[in-house]
């Protein structure tokens, strides 16, 4: 075990995957010489040479399109989109191509690519450095979607994503790159070195895609969360003195339905949280799953705490962000119904 930030864990996952499989190539804007604007690929070009890790032109469509072509040849590209907010030029390549190549060719071709991108807010990035577009991927058949919340999982899941035979969209909430941010933006930053999930196994290991993790055990209610909101939910539970069970979904597609059902049947109450806008967000899917499978165990209507249906603001970041106060309040309301 080594104490790492999430950035270091992601870097380490690349190192391990590139070491064990020379078909793994890494590219994107500023990822080669510089090592990425968040430094997640730092040292890769130095170690593996510029034919394994290289800079790309500023063309997200080009990055993902080229990755699909390379994968068709037999490589395993793991590419970076500088911010999730800039993935839209690549959307056609992801949705119409990467996601469907296997199906439309009856398995003749496939697209085992990973498209990594920093996501989420909390850094005063305004509307173009803060978005959480996960639902735009989960709505597409043929894509796996992973959202990580800590260094330990980030390494294991990234290795699994690179080894996966299908395209994986890998979302990295940038606000937890350097510590388990719990939404208290006015308090000092807690580093990963002070958190058990900052301990990352050495060498090769992977975490199965499609498996959730119980982040905090509890019996009063279930919080379905992923990414930064896992830490927010934990803080809210502790501050409210509510014995909430916090599930870190980790993978949105395929979804760990068993973990959800088991927890909601136990607690009888369910809160769904995410940073992304409320309407048609992934939370709506979670509500549907809980309703379909656990209705007769529910003692109260399912509640959602999400980003508002506005573009992500700059000045009003903390009115927008679903922080521990809002989440805690929803927990209390859920328990009182």
């Amino acid at each position: 075990m080594t104490a790492m930030t999430m950035i270091e864990a992601i870097r380490d996952a690349h190192m391990v995957a590139m070491e064990s499989d020379d078909r793994v190539v890494v590219f994107g804007e500023d990822v080669g010489y510089f090592g990425g604007v968040f430094r997640c690929t730092q040292g890769l070009q130095e170690r593996f040479g510029d034919h394994r890790c290289f800079d790309s032109p500023i063309s997200e469509a080009g990055i993902v399109g080229a990755a699909v072509g390379m994968a068709a040849y037999g490589l395993r590209p793991c590419v970076e989109i500088q911010f999730a907010d800039y993935v839209y030029p690549a959307y056609d390549q992801i949705v119409s191509e990467a996601a469907r190549v296997r199906h439309r060719s009856a398995g003749d071709f496939s697209a085992p690519i990973v498209v990594r991108m920093p996501t989420g807010g909390g850094i005063f990035g305004g509307q173009t450095h803060s978005q959480s577009p996960e639902a735009l991927f989960t709505h597409v058949s043929g894509l796996k979607t992973v959202v990580v919340s800590n260094p330990h999982d980030a390494k294991g899941l990234l290795i699994a994503a690179i080894e996966d035979d299908d395209p994986v969209v890998f979302l990295e909430p940038k606000r937890v790159y350097n510590g388990p941010f719990d939404g208290h933006h006015d308090r000092p930053i807690v580093p990963w070195s002070k958190h058990p999930l900052g301990d990352v196994p050495d060498g090769h290991y992977s975490i199965e895609i499609g498996k959730a993790r119980v982040h905090r055990e509890g019996s009063d209610l279930t919080v379905l969360a992923y990414g930064t909101l896992v830490h927010v939910a934990q803080a809210a539970a502790e501050e409210q003195g509510i014995d909430a069970e916090v599930i870190d979904l980790r993978t949105l597609v395929p979804l760990d339905v068993d973990a959800i059902v088991e927890s909601v049947e136990k607690t009888g109450r369910c809160l769904v949280v995410h940073e992304a806008t409320l309407t048609s967000g992934f939370g709506a899917e979670l509500c549907a799953v809980v309703q379909e499978r656990c209705l007769f165990h529910l003692e109260a209507p399912i509640r959602r705490v999400c980003g508002w249906d506005t573009p992500y603001p700059h000045a009003h970041e903390w009115s927008y962000f679903p922080g521990p106060d809002r989440v805690g309040r929803a927990m209390r309301e859920l328990l009182s119904t």
Binding site: G126, Q127, T128, H129, P311, P313, H314, A315
Partner: peptide, 29 residues
């Protein structure tokens, strides 16, 4: 990004907009 910002603090600093001055709203994309 203060109260007098004509864009109401919505945009990242430097992403100005002014139709009257022939300056289309800047996108970060």
């Amino acid at each position: 990004s203060n109260e007098h910002d004509p864009l109401h603090g919505r945009q990242l600093p430097v992403m100005y907009s002014s139709k009257a001055h022939g300056f289309f709203t800047i996108s970060g994309n």
